[in-house]
């Protein structure tokens, strides 16, 4: 905020050209404002929160008289929800950004300002990321509040961890979305591609890998390695790893990973997700630098 303030005063004084940082911040603020005011943000946040509340309520209720809350699968249920919604949210948000600016003729205007193209891309990325963070934390926060009110004994740390990891997943998926946005010409095509990618990541790769496991009798290390290629699987395994302190619930592959990698496992998951953040965004920057803005 203070950075943004100084940006404006500097601009008014016109004393020196704004720094890259202030450019990025200003562009980020613009994107954030647009995102927060937009319909998709409100819609996704509402849907995510509503579904999350439903999951929390049902799972807190299911254990009911059995007296076993606190061991519940509430966090696991929320994890499933995050797996479905957050990638969709991030992919479509990213895909819509640059493509729609281009379609509306906004892009040449923006690039006529004294800003570098990578500044525009990064600013857009950060603004959207912040909007996604707000959406995810508000949704999960509301779930935690409901669980607390219902007297559920979910470990508070697990919800916070889930929120943090969901944000990292959102960063990765947003990165992919931006790449889609940069390479497509029309906003509708970008959104369509994003949805297709979402379907592929959420269902396609897993189902394919399941079939492959049975058909080719994949070895356990191959299976685990292939799972690492899917950011959603990485997010899921990482979440289970930090929340449950164990991924042995995932059967032989989980036990194998735990035995072989042990404490390095968190770093492997972090590295895999970081690659999904950095690589697509880097690619997008490189492509965007060369493409015509119209």
């Amino acid at each position: 905020m203070t950075a943004a303030l100084t940006v404006t005063s500097d601009d008014r004084a016109g004393s020196r050209p704004p720094s890259a940082l202030s450019n990025v911040v200003a562009l980020g603020m613009r994107q954030l404002r647009d995102a927060v005011r937009s319909r998709w943000f409100a819609l996704y946040t509402l849907a995510f929160t509503a579904l999350g509340l439903a999951v929390s309520y049902v799972s807190a209720h299911a254990a009911g008289g059995a007296g076993v809350s606190g061991f519940g699968r509430t966090t696991a249920g929320l994890l499933n929800l995050v797996l479905l919604i957050v990638p969709l949210m991030a992919l479509t948000a990213g895909a819509g950004s640059i493509a729609s600016d281009r379609e509306r003729g906004m892009l040449p205007y923006l690039l006529a300002q004294p800003i570098a193209r990578w500044e525009l891309l990064l600013g857009t990325y950060l603004g959207l990321a912040l909007a996604l963070f707000a959406s995810v934390t508000l949704g999960l926060g509301a779930c935690a509040a409901v669980l607390a009110a219902m007297g559920e004994r979910t470990d508070p740390g697990s919800i916070v961890w889930l929120a943090v990891l969901s944000c990292i997943l959102a960063l990765g998926m947003l990165s992919v979305g931006m790449l889609v946005s940069v390479v497509t010409r029309r906003a509708s095509v970008a959104t369509g591609t994003a949805v297709f990618l979402w379907l592929a990541l959420v269902f396609g790769t897993d189902l394919g890998l399941m079939a492959g496991t049975i058909a080719f009798k994949l070895r356990i290390q191959t299976l685990f390695g292939l799972c690492l290629a899917n950011p959603l699987q990485v997010f899921k395994m990482w979440s289970l790893h930090v929340i449950d302190a164990s991924i042995d619930v995932l059967g032989p592959a989980g036990t194998y990973a735990l035995d072989t990698w042990g404490s390095a496992l968190s770093w492997i998951f972090a590295g895999a997700l970081a690659a999904w953040v950095v690589v697509p965004l880097g690619l997008a920057t490189a492509i965007f630098a060369r493409r015509s803005p119209v």
Partner: peptide, 16 residues
């Protein structure tokens, strides 16, 4: 096929 446990809790499981 116990190896498939790795897909527990994923949306693909619900799809199946």
């Amino acid at each position: 096929e116990p190896k498939l446990r790795v897909f527990l809790l994923s949306p693909a499981e619900s799809a199946i």
